[in-house]
Amino acid sequence: MTEQKTSFEPKIVGFLCNWCSYAGADKAGTAQSPYPPNVDVVKVMCSGRVDPQFVMKAFEKGADGVIILACHPGDCHYKEGNYRAAQRFRMLSRLLKQFGIEEGRCRFDYVSAGEGEKFVTVITDMVAAVRALGPLNKSEQAKTA
């Protein structure tokens, strides 16, 4: 078991808003700050675009974790999309729990366009947390759904 966890490379999908978080990820890039390669980014214009079904789809298709990154409160390019995203995330968290998906597998955080270092920290933490949780154990039913 211990061996499996150390060699386990989690697959994580990251939904990043175009204006803050995606730009924050670029900032980490221009600063050439390394972070684990486990988070694959799917860009959306606004975190408010993240439909809960995207998260469900990611888990269904084999993701071990999902992270949604938004503009800081008050900074949303679209004024309030990040608040909608935060609301939906709360609802989604409850739903995921009912499906037996551990809390730490789906995370919501704020990363601004200037926060390259925070992006690195958030991603590194997320990867470590999901690595510790191990692979997502979906029931056979969920796999075939």
């Binding site: 799917v42 214009m45 606004c46 675009r49 995207f54 789809k57 390019h77 909608r84 939906r88």
Partner: peptide, 24 residues
């Protein structure tokens, strides 16, 4: 921004260039 697209309970709104199908 696509907030309405994500909010629509019946999937009646398409977000151009960021459609559900494209993102999925």
């Amino acid at each position: 921004c696509g907030t309405c697209v994500a909010a629509c309970p019946v999937g009646a709104i398409k977000g151009n260039h960021f459609t559900n199908n494209e993102i999925l």
